[in-house]
């Protein structure tokens, strides 16, 4: 009984120590990509890693906290896309639990499905709140699609999905590659995620 209590306390302290650091991963990569105006986001790698390591609740906290802090420093509209981060965490957890990161084919498939889901969640925010343009690299593609005759709604959706497909697939691959580089004895401390299902720990 006491051992189980100690384990719960250990898990709790580990989660609390890890959350701020995972927020830092989102902040660091997201801000570099934004400053360079690249047509991708790469701002959810920390969310995906945290979800795979500690479950969707922790992933969602990391994603939302990252959005709030990044909107204070580099990307003002980021906070409005907090809902997308929660959905990313939820989807990653479900995919991870069913072994969605086990091999390259599965990782790419997970990335594609994640991209579709993220576009469906974030496109209404981009369309209704920002009129289709948020000032990042993807806005240029939205403008181009509008200039060749697509309506604003379709342009936002099409540019969103095309960017998200590359972005989310890359994020799933990068997140897995990073976790694969972490020594297994370190990963073994983390519970509640889907590391075992994806052969990241024995």
């Amino acid at each position: 009984m006491e051992a189980s209590g100690n384990n719960t306390y250990a898990n709790k302290t580990l989660t609390l120590a890890f959350i701020p650091l995972a927020v830092g991963i989102n902040l660091g990569i997201g801000s570099i990509v934004h400053v360079l105006k690249l047509p991708v986001y790469l701002d959810s790698i920390g969310t995906v890693i945290a979800t795979l390591m500690l479950g969707w609740r922790v992933g969602a906290i990391v994603g939302v906290a990252g959005c709030i802090i990044i909107s204070l420093t580099i990307i003002p509209p980021a906070v409005y896309f907090s809902g997308t981060q929660v959905c990313i965490a939820l989807f990653t957890h479900l995919a991870g639990r069913s072994g969605g990161f086990r091999n390259v084919f599965r990782r790419v498939s997970t990335g594609i499905m994640l991209a579709i889901m993220a576009t469906l969640v974030s496109a209404p925010v981009t369309y209704y709140l920002f009129g289709g343009i948020t000032g990042n690299g993807i806005s240029i593609f939205t403008i181009y699609l509008q200039s060749i005759g697509l309506t604003k709604g379709y342009a936002v959706l099409a540019s969103g999905i095309s960017a998200e497909l590359i972005d989310k697939t890359a994020q799933c691959l990068i997140a897995f590659f990073i976790l694969k580089s972490v020594p297994r004895f370190l990963l073994a401390h983390f519970h509640g995620g889907s590391l075992r299902e994806n052969n990241l720990i024995g």
């Binding site: 302290t13 120590a17 890890f18 650091l21 991963i25 580089s181 972490v182 370190l186 401390h189």
Partner: peptide, 19 residues
């Protein structure tokens, strides 16, 4: 990226034990 994240995970485990 990799040394940064591996370092972060290592710090989290160390910090947790210290806490």
């Amino acid at each position: 990226l990799i040394p940064l994240i591996v370092g972060i995970i290592r710090t989290a485990t160390e910090r947790s034990e210290s806490w």
